[in-house]
Amino acid sequence: MPAIASKQYSDDVSLLVLLLDTNPLFWSTTSITFSQFLSHVLAFLNAVLGLNQLNQVVVIATGYSSCDYIYDSSLTSNHGNFESNGTGMPAIFGSLLKKLEEFVTKDEELSKEEVSEDRIPSCLLSGSLSMALCYIQRVFRSGHLHPQPRILCLQGSPDGPEQYVAVMNSIFSAQRLMVPIDSCYIGVQNSAFLQQASYITGGVHHTPKQLDGLFQYLTTIFATDLHSRGFVQLPKPIGVDFRASCFCHKKTIDMGYICSVCLSIFCEHHKKCSTCGSVFGQSKLDDASSASDKKRKAPST
């Protein structure tokens, strides 16, 4: 290329990291097919890239057993392929679909090796969130001139309670980095993880009611850059599902016990914290009173 454009980023330059749910156990039960879903998503990504010439898009596939980067618009290998091979597909996403197919094949091989078959059919949200935050951290360290990053979770799988700690750690890291997590849940239930993620990080959470209008939802709500959100009214949550998962059985609870030392959450009373080793129930005052009771009883015997 002749000359690289100089970095002059304004307020509305965005870096969108899209976490794409590719859990086959979810897509085999939905009313909309995965190909239709991909049509809407790819059109949406094209629209985001069209909003600003300097916008960047990264797509991370969230599978049943693994996660991986399947598209990065800032890579030079994705530029220059303008030949059209006769179909309606833009050539710019040819590599994305190719990598997606390779990822699904690898994910299938990994799932065969899994010994456990009792897992809730959830996707690895914590893994993809961690990979997204790693990518954003690299962008931050490349210099003070960088687009404003945000994460968009497109998910339909149910929440996996065993990932509660890892998901919450990712959410708090995103909060610390001031990276909002937008969430679009297309499953049948409510997702407590995504609700808490958007609430804590200041993103937008929405559950579309008509999946055949997904593109309209995406462009109306989630294409807004961070600068424009100060002027645009976006859907606000009426309530947030703040339930947590217990650390002993990995099930979702709304009332439980908590360790006052390390804040671990338990669904039933334990004598000892399995995380930090604190002993519950035995306190100094109880022993002091029992000791004084013994002292008082001795002379009267």
């Binding site: 995965f34 190909s35 991909l38 197919e101 699904v104």
Partner: peptide
Amino acid sequence: LLKESILVIR
């Protein structure tokens, strides 16, 4: 089924 969907859109 998932791979078949990807093939369809390609």
